[in-house]
Amino acid sequence: MAQWLQAKDTISGQQGRVYATINGNVEEMAYVKTLEAKIEKNMTEVKVLGYLGDQNKANGWKGTGSMTLYYVTSLFRQLMLDYVTTGKDTYFDLVIVNEDPTSSIGRQTVTLQNVNFSSTIIAKVDTGSELLDEDLDFTFSGVKLLDSFTKP
């Protein structure tokens, strides 16, 4: 067993993959630059007799995330326009895979369920940018850990 983490066992950020399943179609999202999803507990403050400090009790959770994409797809603009014109919102799943073949820790696969975008850039120009990108914020209401990293 190693006494410290070996550099080869860290995960390269460029070795990830992201897939969206939207209306039954799987879209490989090779245009993702960054993606981060987090779960935050809803906490209730609890005061009790005989104790001067505040205690907290978890009473639920909320899933939120953000993505930065290269500005090369109209898919999410179309989903937003569908909502604007019909009122029908689209929820979908995202599968995020981290797998660096150099590392000994294997693969981690996370599925975010019922993903819904909060906002979408509908059009963009930027004369000071060499490459256009866009930021998308989202929420999700389910999550599965399909594959877990092993210990190095």
Score class of each variant (00 low, 15 high):
Thr85Val: 14
Arg77Gly: 03
Thr109Glu: 15
Leu75Gln: 14
Leu79Tyr: 00
Gly16Thr: 01
Tyr83His: 10
Leu145Lys: 08
Asn25Cys: 02
Asn59Tyr: 03
Arg17Phe: 04
Gly24Gln: 11
Asp147Leu: 01
Val97Arg: 08
Asn56Leu: 07
Val125Asp: 08
Asp54Tyr: 04
Ala7Gly: 06
Thr102Cys: 08
Asn42Met: 08
Thr85Arg: 06
Ser66Tyr: 01
Lys144Pro: 00
Asp100Lys: 05
Glu28Asp: 11
Ser104Leu: 13
Phe149Pro: 09
Gly63Ile: 02
Tyr91Asp: 06
Thr150Tyr: 06
Glu99Cys: 08
Asn114Cys: 06
Leu136Pro: 00
Ser148Ile: 05
Phe140Cys: 07
Thr86Asp: 06
Ser103His: 07
Glu130Ala: 13
Gly87Asn: 06
Gln6Phe: 07
Met67Cys: 07
Leu75Lys: 14
Asp147Met: 03
Met67Phe: 08
Gly65Phe: 09
Leu35Gln: 01
Gly16Met: 14
Ser12Gln: 10
Tyr71Arg: 04
Ser141Arg: 13
Tyr31Asp: 09
Asp100Thr: 13
Gly60Pro: 12
Ser104Thr: 06
Gln15Ser: 15
Glu28Thr: 04
Thr10Ser: 08
Asp9Phe: 05
Leu146Val: 15
Leu81Ile: 11
Val125Asn: 12
Met29Gln: 10
Val84Ile: 15
Lys47Ala: 10
Asp147Gln: 13
Val95Trp: 02
Lys38Tyr: 02
Val84Leu: 14
Thr139Gly: 15
Gln14Gly: 08
Thr85Ala: 05
Thr127Met: 05
Leu132Lys: 01
Lys33Trp: 01
Leu132Phe: 04
Asn98Leu: 14
Ile22Asp: 02
Asp135Lys: 15
Ala37Phe: 13
Lys151His: 02
Lys62Asn: 07
Asn25Ile: 15
Phe140Asn: 07
Leu79Asp: 02
Thr102Phe: 11
Arg77Tyr: 00
Asn25Asp: 14
Lys151Leu: 11
Lys124Leu: 14
Gln3His: 10
Leu132Pro: 01
Ala2Phe: 11
Phe92Cys: 07
Asn114Arg: 11
Val48Ile: 14
Pro101Ile: 01
Asp89Thr: 14
Asp54Met: 05
Val46Ala: 02
Thr127Asp: 12
Met1Gly: 10
Met43Cys: 00
Thr120Pro: 00
Thr64Met: 09
Glu27Gln: 10
Tyr19Gly: 02
Asp54Gln: 10
Asp82Met: 06
Leu145Cys: 09
Ser119Ile: 05
Leu131Thr: 14
Lys88Arg: 09
Ala58Thr: 13
Thr127Gln: 12
Thr21Cys: 08
Phe138Ser: 03
Glu40Met: 04
Asn23Gly: 11
Gln55Glu: 11
Glu99Met: 03
Thr73Phe: 08
Gly53Ile: 01
Glu40Asp: 12
Met67Glu: 05
Leu49Arg: 15
Phe92Gly: 04
Gly24Leu: 05
Val97Ala: 05
Asn114Pro: 00
Ala123His: 03
Ile105Phe: 01
Gly63Pro: 03
Asp135Trp: 01
Val48Ala: 09
Met29Lys: 05
Asp9Ser: 07
Thr34Asn: 13
Asp100Val: 11
Asp54Phe: 02
Asp126Phe: 02
Gln3Lys: 12
Thr86Cys: 05
Leu69Lys: 10
